[in-house]
Amino acid sequence: MNGHLEAHLIALCCGKPPAGQERWSVRLLAHSFIQLCYVDQISHKTVWMIVKSNQLKPWLKEQWCIPPKVNAEFVYHMEDVLEVYTRPHNPCFPQVCLDEASSCLLADTREPLPLKPGEPKREDAEYKREGTCSLFLACEPLTGKRVVQVRARRTKADWALFMRDLIDIHYAQAEKIVLVLDTLNTHTPSSFYEVFDPAEAWRLSQKLEVHYARHPWKLVEYG
């Protein structure tokens, strides 16, 4: 294949796949290249070699924060959070990221085979769903400290109760928690007023310095 045809193949690879296809595969590239009448025939192995030599991986994708071209609100929140991340560690004002995730509760349908020398424990591919739960995770990046709670749901009340534990138990000595979190509608000090009396809600709200990261910034990874 000459350089002219290779350039067309690379351009095809960097473009959108056909309708109904989520991403390119080497076989789909080969088929489309023939359909577009660039060549009469080409093997998927040849396509793979060209794609590899140009360091392209069209079958892979990464989630990334792609900002809007013009969005003042996005820029404000970005710079606000970045300023927080430049602050040195201060135990009186710990910097904490908070996020949540849902998780499926799964049960075995058959007894797993136990671990043996040279063989790992083996579980059947079939499972029984036992509902879901919500994971609340607060992470302090500068110290590596993590606080996790498992709750049945993630309502305003669940968030408020988790935050009270974070404030009164895990960071009881802090003057204020510098909290970075996303803009989920439950993530607001007003949630305290849904659960506690006004005096307690006000006390808890004054223990937080809140900084919002705009969706879809992922603050905490669950592993």
Rank of each mutant, 00 (worst) to 15 (best):
K16M: 04
L28V: 09
P91S: 03
R154F: 03
P68W: 06
V210S: 05
L142C: 01
R146T: 05
L219N: 02
E175C: 01
P141L: 09
A30D: 06
T143D: 11
V96G: 08
D197M: 15
Q63Y: 13
L12G: 07
V75N: 08
K116C: 06
W217G: 00
Q21L: 13
L208C: 02
T155C: 01
V84I: 14
K16N: 04
G20H: 13
T188Y: 09
Q173C: 00
P68R: 07
R154G: 03
R110C: 11
T183C: 13
E73V: 08
Y212D: 02
P112D: 11
Q63W: 14
R154N: 08
W217D: 12
V180P: 00
V148W: 07
A107H: 14
F33A: 04
L9E: 05
E62L: 15
F93A: 06
K61F: 11
C37W: 02
A30R: 05
L82S: 04
K52S: 10
E100C: 02
N90E: 13
V150A: 10
L106Q: 15
A19I: 10
Q35E: 12
E6I: 12
A160K: 08
G3C: 01
W64P: 02
K176L: 04
P141K: 08
C97R: 02
T143W: 12
E6M: 09
K69M: 13
P67F: 05
L56E: 07
L161V: 05
T143R: 10
G131V: 02
F162D: 00
P94N: 04
N54V: 01
P120E: 12
K156S: 09
C92V: 00
E209L: 04
V51C: 08
E194V: 13
M49Y: 10
L166I: 05
L5H: 12
I66L: 12
T183D: 12
S102A: 11
T155D: 01
G144Y: 06
E123I: 03
N71Y: 12
A213K: 03
K121P: 05
K57C: 14
L36K: 12
R214C: 00
H215Q: 08
V148K: 09
F192V: 04
H89C: 01
K145T: 07
F162V: 03
A201R: 15
L204V: 01
T86W: 03
S205E: 05
E62P: 00
G15W: 08
H170K: 09
I50L: 15
M163D: 07
K52D: 10
A30N: 01
F33M: 07
V81S: 04
F74P: 05
L105H: 00
F196H: 14
V220P: 11
K116M: 07
P112A: 10
L219W: 02
